Amino acid sequence: MDDDREPSVNISGGDAGGGVAAEFDPATAETRAERVIDRLGERYWQKTYGGQNAFPCLVRTILSQNTSDKASQPAYDALLERYGSADDSSASSESSPDLANALAQAEQSTLAETIQPAGLYNQKSETLIDVAEWVLEEFGSGVAFDEFVTDEEPSAVRDTLLSVRGVGPKTADCVLLFAGGRGGVFPVDTHVHRIYRRLGIAPPDADHEDVRAVLERDVPTEKCGFGHTASIQFGREFCTARQPACLEDPDACPMGDLCDQVGVYPATGEVVDPADALE
């Protein structure tokens, strides 16, 4: 897009994080989920992702676990300043081994202090060291890991990543999307999990993997990437956990006509998890 407003302070890295503008025709939408994604794309951005180095992307995603991008970004910047090089977050894979080697040899308490803004810094520092050691033992270098993520079958990459302690489905899917550039991958974080159950697109009691299955089934491959990042932005601005925009004004939300408001009760001001709306 000519006016790409995607923030740099998110896991995708904004304009500098890789990827190219994507084009789509909203008139071709076949499912309600696709109509939602099209509207989000028109409001925010449309981008086909890929191009990040796999190991730095994995590091950045681990830092983002259970916290906001605004908290994890300073931690990632501090980590790169201490352990990485200027090119570790670029599309050049030549620098990936530098960060993997540095983290594999890092002193845990020093790393924990470095990434403190991200929260859970003791746990995350241990995970980062373990993951760096795993990359070097399993692949020999960050470059080889990058090639694995880019070239192997997505299901094999995902299964391999999920076998590593501290790497969950959202983390694995973000690496596939932002580093591997794999279409049809729709990572599910807390925002995505909430939004698509509240909309009524996924079942109210669906877990993260159930929501992912619904979205990857109903959203075309080329729209899953920006669908993920734009949904997160929508969740931050409109469909928040405790005070969604529709609670006080039904016209305040750009998805009002597409939403079932599962768990949201404007008449009483009550907001519950969609799963609790079943009770």
Results as ranks from 00 to 15, higher is better:
residue 142 G to T: 00
residue 142 G to Y: 00
residue 142 G to S: 01
residue 142 G to W: 00
residue 142 G to K: 00
residue 143 V to A: 08
residue 143 V to W: 07
residue 143 V to G: 07
residue 143 V to N: 07
residue 143 V to K: 08
residue 144 A to I: 08
residue 144 A to V: 07
residue 144 A to Y: 06
residue 144 A to P: 08
residue 145 F to R: 05
residue 145 F to P: 03
residue 146 D to C: 06
residue 147 E to Y: 08
residue 148 F to Q: 03
residue 149 V to F: 02
residue 149 V to H: 05
residue 149 V to L: 03
residue 149 V to T: 07
residue 149 V to W: 03
residue 149 V to K: 02
residue 151 D to T: 15
residue 151 D to E: 15
residue 151 D to N: 15
residue 152 E to D: 12
residue 152 E to M: 08
residue 153 E to K: 11
residue 153 E to Q: 10
residue 153 E to L: 11
residue 155 S to N: 13
residue 156 A to S: 14
residue 156 A to G: 13
residue 157 V to T: 09
residue 157 V to Q: 04
residue 157 V to S: 07
residue 157 V to P: 08
residue 158 R to L: 13
residue 158 R to W: 11
residue 160 T to R: 14
residue 160 T to F: 11
residue 160 T to D: 14
residue 160 T to V: 14
residue 160 T to I: 11
residue 161 L to E: 09
residue 161 L to H: 09
residue 162 L to D: 10
residue 162 L to F: 10
residue 162 L to G: 11
residue 163 S to Q: 15
residue 163 S to R: 14
residue 163 S to F: 12
residue 163 S to D: 15
residue 163 S to T: 15
residue 164 V to H: 10
residue 164 V to A: 13
residue 165 R to W: 12
residue 165 R to C: 15
residue 165 R to K: 15
residue 165 R to M: 12
residue 166 G to R: 09
residue 166 G to L: 09
residue 167 V to A: 00
residue 167 V to T: 03
residue 167 V to L: 03
residue 168 G to V: 04
residue 168 G to D: 03
residue 168 G to R: 01
residue 168 G to H: 04
residue 169 P to H: 14
residue 169 P to D: 12
residue 169 P to C: 14
residue 169 P to V: 15
residue 170 K to C: 05
residue 170 K to Y: 07
residue 170 K to E: 08
residue 171 T to V: 13
residue 171 T to E: 09
residue 171 T to A: 12
residue 171 T to I: 14
residue 173 D to I: 03
residue 173 D to M: 04
residue 173 D to L: 06
residue 173 D to C: 04
residue 174 C to A: 04
residue 174 C to W: 02
residue 175 V to P: 00
residue 175 V to Q: 01
residue 176 L to V: 02
residue 176 L to H: 02
residue 176 L to A: 02
residue 176 L to N: 01
residue 177 L to E: 01
residue 177 L to A: 01
residue 177 L to K: 02
residue 178 F to T: 03
residue 178 F to C: 05
residue 178 F to I: 05
residue 178 F to Q: 02
residue 179 A to Q: 05
residue 179 A to C: 07
residue 179 A to D: 05
residue 179 A to W: 04
residue 179 A to K: 04
residue 179 A to G: 06
residue 180 G to E: 03
residue 180 G to D: 04
residue 180 G to F: 02
residue 181 G to A: 06
residue 181 G to H: 04
residue 182 R to E: 08
residue 182 R to Y: 07
residue 182 R to L: 04
residue 182 R to T: 09
residue 182 R to H: 10
residue 183 G to K: 15
residue 183 G to S: 13
residue 183 G to T: 12
residue 184 G to Q: 00
residue 184 G to L: 01
residue 184 G to K: 00
residue 184 G to C: 00
residue 185 V to L: 01
residue 186 F to C: 00
